[in-house]
Simulated scan of single mutants.
Amino acid sequence: MKQDKLFIDTGAWIALIQEKDQFYERASSFLKSLDFSVKRVSSSFILGYGIVRGFLMPTSFLG
């Protein structure tokens, strides 16, 4: 069965954004290997949680 959507959770966003994350290379390679027809989806809750916790925002924005 072909998958046409990929849900990206907080851990994956963190790994993709923070190059020092232990899963950065793995997450980046996986995302690049996906066919362009696969839709990447997340939620405002996931993104909001990552921002509030400071994971999805460069430290220069945190003061």
Rank of each mutant, 00 (worst) to 15 (best):
A12H: 10
I46L: 04
S29L: 10
M1D: 04
I46W: 15
F30M: 14
F55Y: 12
E25L: 13
W13E: 10
L47Q: 12
K5F: 08
Q22T: 11
I14G: 08
D35K: 12
R26K: 10
D4N: 09
K32D: 11
F55E: 14
G54A: 09
A12I: 15
L47M: 12
I17M: 11
K2Q: 04
I8R: 03
K20V: 01
Y49M: 04
L56W: 06
W13D: 10
S37N: 14
E25P: 05
K2S: 10
F30Y: 14
Y24M: 14
A15M: 12
D21Q: 01
K32H: 06
G48T: 11
G50E: 08
L62V: 14
E19I: 07
S43N: 08
R53H: 02
D9I: 05
G54F: 02
G11H: 07
L47D: 05
L56E: 09
S29Q: 09
F36P: 04
I17S: 11
K5A: 04
D9K: 02
F55Q: 14
V41T: 12
L31T: 05
R53C: 04
Y49E: 11
S42Y: 10
V38F: 11
I8K: 07
Q3I: 12
S43C: 13
I14W: 03
S44C: 00
K39Y: 03
